[in-house]
């Protein structure tokens, strides 16, 4: 006897229901009922179950349980995965090359080349000696406590991922800014990317690619970190002064001229703010990326957590914070330079 028996009998589906006679596993609730001998008691309105798949299943064995739904989904994925991987695997392969290349390059170049090179980049981007000194000291500190290699691995991964985020994010943002339809379609996807727990899509990806591919964590980082650069590019271009756009039209600019000579330059402060956010978010993904075998500081954090080596965890966490501060300061400083150049 189950709550919704009447539904199926009134619909005349008893026969169909009875077709499926396979046992469904006894649930704990059933067992407890059996123990207490309360089965004969009628259900009170307080215990009315929501008309869910499982509740219907109890009344009608042929009605699928909700676990059949998830099982079906899994089966569906397994069925199409071969075709999917034929498409996705080569498409994403360059990501593995970039990541492996960057990791190889940064680890096989001596520190006395890498550190000055990074400092030079910092100077070119920010034109601030103060920042160069700060970054130099931070890197020296990390190197001194023998975290140089891990920090550089993390840095290399972030460089590659942030670069690809900008490479794809800016055009997507531009496309969004030019079409309201595109914006309406993209925003829910972006929301989903930011909230979906990475493992939910990472595990299926392992079925598609080999787990040893570095693109796995690359994808995890990029999918999460690309969102702000898309959003802010879109916003930045939409916020460009309508009057200036009108002037560009009135003087006969083509759409391309408008985009490159007006919209992108004027949206640059917002785009750069997006880049800054993107870099910060890639850093936030470092630990999760290490769960899918990304090298770097995240591995140490995991090790610290798993072995209760609190010290290792703390120092590695601190290393991530130092990298975050460096990257944040540097991108903010270059952002400030752009802002100063085009204050309206």
């Amino acid at each position: 006897m189950a709550t919704y028996d009447f539904l199926f009998s009134s619909l005349g589906l008893e026969k169909w229901c009875a077709e499926d006679t396979s046992d469904t596993p006894l649930s704990m609730v059933d067992l407890l009922k059996k123990t207490k001998g309360t089965e004969a008691q009628p259900d009170s309105i307080w215990e009315l179950p929501f008309p869910s798949m499982d509740a219907f299943h109890e009344s009608c064995a042929s009605f699928p349980q909700s676990r059949d739904l998830t099982k079906g989904l899994e089966q569906g994925f397994l069925d199409i995965k071969d075709n999917l991987s034929v498409v996705l695997d080569p498409l994403t392969q360059p990501l593995s090359w970039f990541l492996d290349g960057a990791l190889y390059a940064i680890l096989n170049t001596p520190w006395w080349i890498v550190i000055p090179l990074l400092l030079a980049v910092v100077f070119v981007v920010t034109k601030s000696w103060k920042l160069v000194v700060f970054v130099g000291l931070s890197l020296a500190l990390l190197a001194f406590i023998d975290y140089y290699e891990y920090a550089m691995q993390t840095l290399a991964i972030i460089f590659v991922c942030a670069f690809l985020c900008v490479l794809f994010g800016v055009p997507i943002g531009i496309a969004m800014s030019r079409s309201d339809m595109m914006q309406r379609l993209t925003i829910p996807v972006l929301d989903m990317l930011q909230t979906l727990p990475p493992f939910v899509y990472l595990i299926p990806l392992i079925f598609l690619f080999s787990v040893t591919e570095s693109k796995l964590y690359g994808i995890a980082i990029i999918l999460y970190a690309i969102v702000p650069v898309i959003r802010l590019t879109n916003l930045g271009i939409r916020l460009v002064d309508k009057d200036v756009i009108e002037a560009a039209d009135a003087f006969g600019m083509t759409s391309r001229q408008k985009l490159y000579k007006v919209q992108i330059p004027l949206a640059l402060p917002n785009i750069m703010a997006g880049v800054n956010q993107t870099i910060m978010m890639s850093l936030a993904m470092v630990v999760i990326a290490s769960l899918v075998s990304a090298p770097g500081l995240g591995v140490l954090v995991l090790q610290g957590i798993r072995n209760l080596e609190l010290g290792v965890g703390l120092v590695a966490g601190l290393g991530i914070v130092i990298l975050a501060v460096i990257l944040d300061r540097v991108t903010k400083a270059s952002l400030a330079r752009i802002n100063a150049a085009q204050k309206q």
């Binding site: 071969d82 990472l202 595990i203 392992i206 787990v211 040893t212 075998s293």
Partner: peptide
């Protein structure tokens, strides 16, 4: 020797290999 980052990826790699 491939060092997995988590038990999930270890299990998934086995599952995906056995599936195929």
């Amino acid at each position: 020797v491939f060092n997995h980052g988590s038990g999930e990826t270890l299990a998934s790699s086995m599952a995906s290999a056995v599936q195929d």
